[in-house]
Computed example of a mutant assay.
Amino acid sequence: MNGSIYTQIARNAIQEQYEGTSIDRDFYLSTYPELSQEKACFVTLTLNNRLRGCIGSIIAHQSLLDDLISNAHSAAFHDPRFPPLSKEEFSQLSIEVSLLTHPEPVEYGDRVDLAHIIRPHVDGVILRLGKYQATFLPQVWDELSDFESFFSHLGMKAGIGNDPLSYHPEIYTYQVQKYEEQSHD
Results as ranks from 00 to 15, higher is better:
residue 91 S to T: 13
residue 32 Y to W: 12
residue 130 G to F: 00
residue 101 T to P: 13
residue 20 G to W: 05
residue 57 S to C: 03
residue 133 Q to K: 13
residue 90 F to V: 02
residue 2 N to M: 05
residue 80 P to I: 04
residue 11 R to W: 14
residue 104 E to K: 15
residue 158 A to Y: 12
residue 75 A to S: 12
residue 171 I to F: 08
residue 49 N to P: 01
residue 50 R to L: 07
residue 136 F to D: 13
residue 8 Q to T: 09
residue 63 S to K: 00
residue 35 L to W: 07
residue 71 N to Y: 02
residue 139 Q to I: 12
residue 30 S to H: 09
residue 131 K to M: 06
residue 36 S to L: 01
residue 61 H to D: 13
residue 98 S to F: 07
residue 119 R to V: 01
residue 67 D to E: 08
residue 164 P to K: 07
residue 88 E to I: 13
residue 6 Y to A: 12
residue 14 I to N: 06
residue 55 I to M: 05
residue 19 E to T: 11
residue 36 S to N: 07
residue 158 A to N: 12
residue 46 T to E: 14
residue 166 S to V: 09
residue 144 L to D: 13
residue 177 Q to L: 10
residue 112 V to N: 04
residue 150 F to D: 10
residue 119 R to W: 00
residue 91 S to G: 08
residue 151 F to V: 09
residue 23 I to L: 15
residue 47 L to S: 05
residue 133 Q to V: 09
residue 75 A to C: 05
residue 9 I to A: 10
residue 83 P to F: 06
residue 6 Y to S: 07
residue 71 N to K: 01
residue 35 L to E: 06
residue 78 H to R: 07
residue 51 L to K: 00
residue 118 I to D: 01
residue 92 Q to R: 15
residue 50 R to V: 04
residue 98 S to M: 14
residue 41 C to T: 03
residue 124 G to V: 00
residue 13 A to M: 04
residue 94 S to C: 10
residue 85 L to R: 01
residue 177 Q to T: 13
residue 65 L to A: 01
residue 181 E to Y: 02
residue 49 N to F: 03
residue 70 S to F: 05
residue 83 P to V: 06
residue 24 D to H: 02
residue 89 E to A: 05
residue 146 D to G: 08
residue 135 T to L: 15
residue 60 A to C: 04
residue 107 E to A: 11
residue 89 E to F: 03
residue 97 V to W: 10
residue 174 Y to R: 08
residue 127 L to Q: 02
residue 51 L to P: 02
residue 28 Y to T: 05
residue 141 W to H: 12
residue 9 I to M: 11
residue 146 D to S: 12
residue 114 L to A: 00
residue 89 E to D: 12
residue 56 G to R: 00
residue 1 M to Y: 04
residue 116 H to W: 01
residue 93 L to N: 13
residue 42 F to K: 08
residue 42 F to H: 06
residue 14 I to D: 12
residue 53 G to V: 02
residue 86 S to P: 09
residue 175 Q to E: 14
residue 76 A to K: 00
residue 140 V to W: 12
residue 20 G to P: 11
residue 115 A to I: 00
residue 10 A to T: 06
residue 89 E to Y: 02
residue 159 G to V: 05
residue 121 H to C: 01
residue 99 L to Q: 14
residue 115 A to N: 01
residue 152 S to H: 08
residue 2 N to Y: 04
residue 147 F to K: 10
residue 125 V to T: 01
residue 118 I to N: 00
residue 141 W to V: 14
residue 33 P to K: 04
residue 131 K to I: 04
residue 148 E to M: 03
residue 5 I to C: 06
residue 182 Q to L: 08
residue 164 P to Q: 10
residue 20 G to C: 08
residue 180 E to K: 07
residue 129 L to E: 13
residue 118 I to W: 00
residue 173 T to K: 04
residue 27 F to I: 04
residue 102 H to P: 08
residue 33 P to W: 07
residue 36 S to C: 04
residue 84 P to G: 03
